[in-house]
Each structure stands twice: as C-alpha cells, then as structure tokens.
C-alpha cells in the first residue's frame, strides 16, 4: 500500500521500523554488512558498540540521502549517479561525526574511534540508502527506516556476539574456530529470520 505522503500515523512508522528491523533484517535476511560482523562479533560489548554506531549513521544518512536524492538528484536529472553520491554522503557524514566527537568527548572518541573506519565500508548502510529510495517513503519514514535497519543490524550482531561468547571454543575443532563457527551460527539464525518474512506486509 502506498502511504499518504502528507500524514504519517504512528502505526505506519512502527510498521516501517519493525519490518526494516526484523522481517527485512539487513544482516540475516539480505546478508549485507557481513564482513565487519564476522570480524567484530567476538564479544558482546564490542558488538553493541559497533551496532550502536552503525544504527546512528544509518538513520542519519538515510534521511540525508533522502534529501539529496529528492532535492538534488531528481531536479538535476542525475539519478544515475546516486550510488556515487550516496557513498560520498555517507563518508562525509562519518568524517564529520569523527571530527565532532573528537572535539566534544575524548572518551567517546576512544570508544567509537576504532569502529569508524569500519562503518564507511559497511555495505548495510549503502544498502539501506538504496532500498530507501526504491520505496515511496517521505523524510520521516526514511529516517525511521534507517533507524530500523541499523537497529536490526545491531540486534543481529549482538545476538551473534552473545552466542559466540557462550560457545567455549576450546571444544571446537581448531579448523572450525572463529569464522567457520560464526558462519554456522549466522546460517542457523538466518533460517530463523526467514520465518519472520510474510509477517508484515507493507
């Protein structure tokens, strides 16, 4: 159903959020942003840290890219350049956040600093921007969609981190330790998420 662009009831926003976070989980259903996930998901707190940073960047860049797309690319008739423009917007935003955080809070910068280079290359963020413009969303919905997408990524990587912490890798065959085991965990989890699909129809 095409939402009316002028009125955005809370329920429709909630639907956008839940479907972006669960039924269309960017990590476990669409398999975007897997590489940083495999690298960082060893511990829950690191997973949560990266997840929060990704959520923040995804939500903000979704709405930024929405404006750029709507008020720059379409009027100038250069929609075919969208991929490049989106990449630049995301990169510029991350650079900006890095500089602001650096000046405001030393502690936050220390905590966030190691994740920032990982974020610009997280294909989940670029993917979200591309999905967003393919849907008939307005700016608010675009923001909520980005928020939901990022949150879904956060939930997925935290769950994976939690499971990896619980599995005592001492009892795992050496060749399977690390990535091998994580792949199996992700495989099983993504099977579970397949069940979510069809729960919400937008």
């Amino acid at each position: 159903m095409t939402p009316d662009p002028h009125s955005v009831p809370f329920l429709s926003l909630l639907l956008v959020f839940v479907s972006a976070a669960f039924t269309d989980n960017i990590l476990l259903v669409r398999f975007l942003g897997l590489c940083p996930c495999l690298g960082v998901s060893k511990k829950v707190d690191a997973s949560v840290g990266l997840g929060l940073a990704v959520t923040f960047v995804t939500a903000c860049t979704a709405v930024l890219n929405y404006w750029v797309y709507r008020y720059l690319l379409i009027p100038l008739d250069i929609v075919y350049l969208r991929l490049i423009v989106f990449i630049v917007v995301i990169a510029a935003f991350v650079q900006l956040v890095e500089m602001v955080v650096e000046r405001l809070s030393e502690r936050l910068y220390q905590a966030l600093g190691i994740f920032l280079p990982l974020i610009t290359v997280n294909c989940a963020i670029l993917g979200t921007a591309l999905f967003m413009i393919a849907r008939p969303y307005n700016a608010t919905q675009a923001f909520v969609f980005g928020l939901g997408s990022g949150f879904g990524w956060l939930v997925a990587i935290t769950l994976i981190g939690g499971i990896r912490e619980k599995i005592d890798e001492k009892h795992v065959p050496p060749g399977l330790r690390g990535p091998g085991l994580t792949l199996i965990v992700i495989g099983i989890m993504s099977l579970a998420f397949v069940v979510f699909s069809g729960m919400i129809k937008l």
Partner: peptide
Amino acid sequence: MPPGAFFMLAILTWIARSRTGAKE
C-alpha cells in the same frame, strides 16, 4: 537458500584451515 551457502562455506573453511594449519 542462502543459509545453505553459509553451512557449505563453514565446512570448506574448516577443511581448508585444518589442512593449512589454523594460524590466527
């Protein structure tokens, strides 16, 4: 389905790493 690829890749990684030595 995509999960099938994950299981296959996990098995392949297992075999390959066992053969070439599991350096970190």
